[in-house]
Design a protein around this nucleic acid. Structure first.
Lengths: 115, 115
DNA sequence: ACAATATATACGCCAAAACGTATATGTCAT
DNA sequence: ATGACATATACGTTTTGGCGTATATATTGT
């Protein structure tokens, strides 16, 4: 049920924090979009995504060849509040990462998550 | 000016998180009170207090032989908000640590901080 | 069935961080 | 000056965690 300590550990890494903030801003992104936006290697991003999912911060769904990650919809209220606060305080990173994402061509189409 | 990443790193350790939550709850405590409340060794507590002060999360003042630590009064609003949220989510720890603190005998007298 | 694409994982390596123990520093009382 | 108390720091060890490279798995299109 996601305690504060594992939550802080999950966010105590630059790569993971940038991923979570970008996902909170963008709603849902596939791995290759995150790789492009953060300018990091695919295995590095995948490893951190895996950690964030195990920690219960992110959820994923497969759609064809892509796997879309998003901030878990059932995050406790205190955790959502913290992400909101973090976003305010980390505008610089978020602005850059979002800008690079929007410059990316050939982004996969999203289908509405079922039900 | 305390960025989110160092702040998360500061709280991503059980000892440090318990210290910060207890201080937020109690206002100001000397090292020996924290040692007693958390049931940890003095060097361990001192080391973590030092890290939290360097990170800008705590401030300290000397009063005679004691050094009192407290959550820094100039913490950014987003950081204070996060601590409030963390306290809500970590009630179990906080309750135990506070209870042990109150059971402690011979606690030093506090003088109002000057000016 | 095969090639191309997207993603995950395994392995070995290196660096960061936490720890226990011992010791240093600073303050007070006698 | 000395001893007692409170706190900090140094040192060596161990654990944890992140990384790059290589490889495995899964899906799609031909």
């Amino acid at each position: 049920m996601l305690d504060p300590l594992p939550f802080f550990k999950a966010l105590a890494d630059e790569t993971r924090l940038r991923i979570v903030l970008l996902l909170q801003d963008q709603g849902e992104l596939c791995v290759c979009e995150i790789v492009h936006a953060l300018e990091l290697s695919q295995p590095k991003v995948s490893r951190h995504l895996s950690q964030l999912r195990s920690a219960g911060v992110l959820s994923d769904r497969r759609q064809g060849q892509w796997i879309f990650y998003a901030v878990d919809r059932h995050l406790p209220a205190w955790a959502e509040a913290m992400l909101g606060n973090a976003a305010v305080a980390a505008t610089a990173w978020l602005d850059n990462d979002r800008a690079r994402l929007l410059r990316m061509g050939d982004r996969p189409q999203r289908q509405a998550a079922c039900c």
